[in-house]
Design a protein around this nucleic acid. Structure first.
Length: 741
DNA sequence: TTAACCACGTTTTTT
DNA sequence: ACGTGGTTAA
């Protein structure tokens, strides 16, 4: 046991070995957060303070849950059964399956992912003849999820205007539809399990007595409902309730847009009267130049819980800063630097290329591709989100539950079997009249037994009968053939990859079966249809990897958001421009700029050894060339930590007074560290009227000024001009009378 | 039923 | 610029 605690620093040790009391661990980036969390669990068990069954550990992503399990397996002599470790949604699913009757659900309820939910809403609007222009499905989805995450059912929504009342009506209809079809969306998993325990006191007491230790990862990302869910398990922090051990970093809260409430940290501290607030401030990841930059940036935020990271690893290399003429120029420079790093022996997979928005990956990919550098982009479609996989899963879901109208509608005519929109409309109307599912309505139709719809129903019946005794992988295999999916993609010109993915689905099923057999009695796992439901839940809750080849030695491209939690030897952060990063939309939101700054903080703290910051004077966005100022976040990096590879250019500086920014700062001009030929400097790209960035102009009212930025074209063309004492203004070229000065 | 066409939107994302 | 989704014509 002593070796468990060895090599922990004082604060980590304090956190890990805390008595069973509530604790809030403020864990800075790279401070060993996951280590503390898992060591805490291992220590509680190994020291005999807690039975494994008394542990409830909650994460946000399946990846984090898996990593925690893997680390625990390495720390503990035997794999401790009985712990509940998983995501909020995974654990909620587990609860609802175990107590489905009390929760008012059939045992085989299906889970809707976000896309399924949207499809269900569209179908609902159509069935109710609601104008989807007036009630955009996406917005309605957002409304419904928002209410659920606030814990509000339709009857409890406070609606003061007609529009809201109508949306509440639709919310109610949506719930009825889900209940009819035995489907549950993500927010519903949490809300339903919360209500289950809230209403059922014996059950609640059971779990409250069972779980003595509740540990939460990434606590700053919890939403209101998730926090309430946790509080229920912890008996609201009352005497005798479980000990809450929450780990988080308010400086890394970057998910407010999807409902995360950093305020939960303060609420937790207050409501649970947390006596142990422990700060993990020693960073084991980055060189101090990088860390100091991160600290300096985040210091500009107010309302922090307060932390200052330090390291004993030494300063390391200066942070390289590069100003490019264009996005293409920037990408070319990045590729050259990467090639130089690789020549020096760097592993490609240890180099990350980060950006604020996905649209930026295009230029970067183009240059990487031209240079023949292997790369991997995160953020595309994931395995279980692919069209062909969704179709295959839809057939499987019909076997498990034929009354699921979402999947019925999805595959009733895929592959095509002559069931057009017209027949579906008739069927839908009939289903409403009989108040039955689409599937169950087919026999009611006056159509002959040989009708296309009747044939489809027969197909589903046959599938269910023929697969009844099959092991899961063979079941899937059979469905792929009998449904006609294989034949369909075989006939398609571009169907090869899709066929491969379908085969991969069989592999996924085989893996799932193997894991199930390892965990339960083999005879239990052998029951094919029972396992099928579990497999389908797994597919909904865990969308899988983003792309194949995760092991390949390739440069890693991703948004700053998806880089959270990762680390790399070298990080390139591109597009550091006003409007892009911080994103222009964020400036309109309250606390938006501070969230962008936290994002910047996350980006910078991903780097271990080397950090490269770059921006471009012009950038292609939405088919138009935009001229941006460099990001204010760049100015927040102390000059002593950086090394400008291009001369600091006052014209591209953000902020008010022209030329007031960092004149002569940064240590002068340095050649690019790679021995590369750069294209000769083009002049600033001319704007429509022959004006240029940096050009002096005069205006009748504002006087002398200099063009600092421009955007739009034709009659929309406008330029930003710094008039010195008269301020910085945007002027429409078609309106303003400007004269070259 | 399918291909062709146009309008539309375009920050970030997990479950 | 570029992909998506919906409508229209063949």
């Amino acid at each position: 046991m002593s070796d468990l605690l060895a090599n922990l620093n004082a604060e980590q040790l304090q956190a890990v070995s805390l008595p069973p009391q509530h604790a809030l661990i403020l864990a800075g980036a790279g401070s060993g957060k996951t280590r503390v969390l898992t060591t805490r669990i291992a220590w509680l068990i190994q020291s005999g303070q807690a039975d494994p069954a008394a542990i409830l550990a909650v994460t946000f992503t399946n990846k984090a849950a898996k990593e925690m399990l893997a680390r625990l397996a390495a720390m503990l002599p035997v794999s401790p059964r009985g712990m509940w470790i998983g995501t909020f949604h995974g654990l909620a699913n587990r609860l609802l399956r175990a107590h489905h009757r009390d929760a008012g659900l059939p045992q085989l309820f299906q889970i809707l992912d976000a896309a399924d939910q949207l499809a269900a809403i569209k179908r609902l609007l159509k069935a109710l003849n609601v104008d989807d222009e007036k009630f955009p499905p996406r917005e309605l989805q957002h409304f419904i999820n928002g209410q659920k995450e606030a814990g509000i059912r339709p009857h409890a929504v406070e609606a003061w205007d007609d529009y809201t009342r109508q949306r509440v009506q639709l919310y109610q209809e949506y719930e009825a539809q889900c209940q009819r079809e035995s489907v549950v969306d993500f927010a519903e998993l949490l809300l339903r399990s919360h209500e289950l325990l809230e209403r059922n006191e014996p059950l609640r007491r059971h779990y409250q007595r069972r779980f003595r230790h509740i540990l939460v990862d990434e606590f700053q990302d919890t939403n209101r409902l998730q926090y309430r869910w946790l509080k229920l398990f912890a008996d609201e922090g009352r005497e005798g309730g479980a000990a809450m051990f929450c780990v988080g970093d308010d400086d890394q809260s970057i998910y407010r847009f999807r409902g995360a409430e950093v305020g939960n940290m303060r609420d937790f501290e207050r409501e649970f009267r947390v006596a142990n607030v422990i700060r993990l401030e020693q960073n084991y990841r980055s060189r101090s130049n990088i860390l100091d930059a991160a600290n300096a940036i985040i210091r500009h935020n107010t309302n922090r819980l307060g932390k200052n990271l330090w390291t004993d690893q030494g300063a390391g290399e200066p942070i390289r800063v590069f100003e490019a003429f264009s996005d293409g120029d920037e990408a070319r420079w990045i590729v050259e630097e990467i090639q130089q790093l690789v020549r020096e022996g760097a592993l490609r997979s240890e180099i990350a290329l980060l950006y604020r928005s996905n649209a930026q990956s295009r230029v970067l990919e183009h240059q990487l591709f031209s240079a023949g550098l292997p790369y991997r982009v995160y953020g595309g479609l994931r395995f279980f989100e692919r069209q062909e996989i969704k179709h295959a899963l839809a057939y499987l879901r019909l076997i498990a539950n034929a009354d699921d109208d979402t999947v019925f509608a999805r595959v009733v005519n895929f592959p095509t079997r002559g069931i057009g929109a017209r027949s579906l409309e008739v069927l839908q109307d009939a289903a409403r009249t009989y108040n039955t599912s689409l599937y169950a309505t087919v026999p009611h139709l006056s159509g002959k037994p040989g009708s296309a719809l009747a044939v489809f129903v027969r197909l589903v019946e046959d599938l269910r009968r023929d697969t009844a005794g099959l092991p899961l992988p063979e079941l899937v295999d059979h469905v792929l053939d009998a449904s006609g999916l294989r034949a369909h993609y075989k006939a398609e010109k571009e169907g090869r990859e899709r066929l491969e993915n379908l085969d991969e689905l069989i592999n996924a099923a085989a893996n799932f079966l193997a894991e199930a057999q390892a965990q339960r009695a083999p005879e239990e796992a052998a029951a094919a249809h029972a396992l099928l439901a579990d497999f389908l839940a797994h597919a909904s809750l865990e969308a899988g990897e983003h792309q194949a080849d995760p092991g390949a030695d390739a440069v890693q491209l991703m948004t700053v958001h998806s880089a959270k939690g990762l680390e790399f030897n070298a990080v390139f952060l591109s597009g550091l421009e006003e409007g892009l990063f911080p994103h222009e939309n964020s400036l309109l939101e309250s606390d938006g700029l501070e969230e962008e700054r936290r994002l910047m903080y996350v980006a910078v703290t991903r780097a271990r050894e080397r950090l490269y910051l770059s921006f471009a004077q012009s950038r292609m966005l939405h088919g138009q060339t935009r001229y941006n100022l460099r990001s204010r976040f760049l100015e927040e990096v102390p000059a002593g930590l950086t090394k400008w590879l291009t001369p600091p250019n006052p014209r591209s500086a953000a902020g008010g007074e022209f030329g007031s920014m960092r004149a002569g700062a940064g240590g002068g001009y340095f050649k690019p560290s790679a021995p590369v030929q750069r294209a000769p400097r083009p002049a600033f790209a001319p704007l429509p009227n022959g004006l240029r960035i940096g050009q002096a102009v005069s205006h009748a009212k504002f006087g002398q000024g200099v063009i600092v930025a421009a955007e739009g074209s034709g009659t929309d063309a406008k330029v930003q001009i710094n008039f010195g004492p008269a301020g910085v203004k945007w002027l429409l070229l078609s309106v303003a009378k400007l004269e070259a000065a």
